[in-house]
């Protein structure tokens, strides 16, 4: 599955971009795509909060969603931790 994660804003104001390919089980992919469906479009007024722009593509499905500090799903937090390593 291809992924592109852009983390912007925050106290540091330094943008981070993570892009690549990873192997995930069908179950895991389903769980990630499902998490992206929870996208909350309301703009956050959190001062120094980061925004998380997530794009996933497994050749069959393409999803993109933007989250703020308060609505990042656990599955996406785990994905970010994984790709940062």
């Amino acid at each position: 599955m291809k992924y592109k994660i852009i983390i912007e804003g925050g106290f540091t104001g330094i943008s981070r971009k993570y892009e690549g390919d990873m192997t995930v089980s069908e179950l895991k992919a389903k769980s990630l795509f499902s998490a992206l469906h929870t996208d909350d479009k309301t703009r956050s007024n959190i001062a120094d909060g980061q925004t998380y722009d997530i794009s996933l593509d497994d050749n069959h499905k393409k999803y993109q969603a933007v989250f703020n500090e308060k609505n990042v799903p656990d599955e996406i937090r785990e994905l970010i931790a994984q790709v940062k390593q």
């Binding site: 925050g10 106290f11 540091t12 007024n45 959190i46 001062a47 120094d48 909060g49 980061q50 500090e69």
Partner: peptide, 28 residues
Amino acid sequence: YGIDYNNAYWDGDEMTYGDGDGLEFTNF
């Protein structure tokens, strides 16, 4: 807050601080 979280923020009610990843950032 969180794991290796490189940030601090104010959410309208309270402050939240990460420990930093220890690589480029440390406790906020």
